[in-house]
C-alpha cells in the first residue's frame, strides 16, 4: 500500500512537473495581484483558479496517476465537491476575497507553507520525483486555507469544512503512509478552526444562546480535542 502510494506520487511528478510549475506560477501571480492591485477580475480569477486546481487534483492526480490506489475515485469525488463549493461561491458571491486592511504575519505565513512540502521531503532524504510538491492535495488544501485566512472577509465555510475534513484524512496518512509533510496541514487547520468559527460567531449579530463567549470557548475546546486526538494517534 505504501509502495503504491509513493509510486503514484513519483509518476505524477515525473509526468506533470511543468504543469505543476505553471499552476504554482499562476497562483503566485494571482495572489500578488490580489494583494497589491485587488481588482474584481482578480477576485473572480482566483475562484476560477480554485475550481481548476480542485478538478486537477480530482481528475489528473486521483483518477489518472493515483488510480491504482484503493477507492481513489472516492477521493476524486470528494475533490469534485470541493470544486463544486468554489463554483457555488463563484455563482452566489457567498464569500469574497478582499485585500485585508491589516493582516498578522502568521496568517500571511500560511500562504508560503505549501512551498515547504518539497523542502521537507528533500530534507528527510527523498529525491525527485518521489517527493511531495505544492501541487499535491494536502498542499493545495493548505494554499486554499491560507487564501481564506488572509483574504476572506466572509468565510466560505463549505470550503473550510472540506479542508478540515481533508486535514483529518491527511493526518491519518502521516501514520498510514509515512508522509510527515502533512503535519503542516493538520497544524494549520487547528488554529483555523478557532479563527473561522469565531469569526462566524462574531459576524452574526442575531441574539442567540448560549453567549458568543461560550460558543467560542466550545470552538476552542473542539479544536484542542481534535488536536489531542491527532497527537495521541500519531504518537
Amino acid at each position: 500500500m505504501d509502495d503504491i502510494f509513493w509510486k503514484s506520487i513519483a509518476d505524477y511528478n515525473t509526468a506533470t512537473w511543468p504543469l505543476q510549475i505553471l499552476f504554482i506560477a499562476v497562483a503566485a501571480v494571482l495572489t500578488l495581484i490580489l494583494w497589491f492591485r485587488p481588482r474584481t477580475w482578480a477576485k473572480i480569477a482566483i475562484k476560477v483558479y480554485m475550481v481548476a486546481v480542485s478538478l486537477w487534483i480530482a481528475f489528473v492526480y486521483y483518477m489518472k496517476y493515483a488510480a491504482a490506489r484503493d477507492y481513489s475515485e472516492v477521493i476524486a469525488i470528494f475533490w469534485c465537491m470541493v470544486a463544486a463549493a468554489w463554483i457555488y461561491d463563484l455563482l452566489t458571491h457567498f464569500a469574497s476575497f478582499q485585500k485585508p486592511d491589516r493582516c498578522s504575519p502568521w496568517r500571511i505565513s500560511f500562504l508560503f507553507l505549501p512551498l515547504l512540502y518539497p523542502v521537507i521531503s528533500l530534507a528527510r532524504g527523498l529525491e525527485f520525483p518521489m517527493i511531495t510538491t505544492p501541487m499535491l492535495p494536502s498542499a493545495v488544501a493548505l494554499y486554499m486555507l491560507g487564501m481564506l485566512l488572509v483574504f476572506s472577509r466572509r468565510i466560505n465555510l463549505f470550503v473550510f469544512i472540506f479542508i478540515v475534513h481533508w486535514s483529518v484524512i491527511a493526518i491519518s496518512k502521516i501514520v498510514f503512509f509515512d508522509i510527515p509533510e502533512d503535519i503542516l496541514l493538520a497544524a494549520a487547520c487547528l488554529p483555523a478552526i478557532y479563527v473561522f468559527f469565531s469569526m462566524m460567531v462574531e459576524e452574526d449579530r442575531t441574539e442567540y444562546k448560549p453567549s458568543r463567549t461560550a460558543v467560542k470557548a466550545l470552538v476552542l475546546a473542539v479544536a484542542v480535542l481534535i488536536g489531542t486526538c491527532m497527537v495521541v494517534e500519531y504518537v
Binding site: M1, F78, H165
Partner: peptide
C-alpha cells in the same frame, strides 16, 4: 449524500 460521501473517504485509509 454529502455526509456519507465525506465519511466514505475513511475507506481510503483502510480502517
Amino acid at each position: 449524500f454529502v455526509a456519507s460521501l465525506c465519511a466514505s473517504t475513511a475507506l481510503t485509509l483502510g480502517l
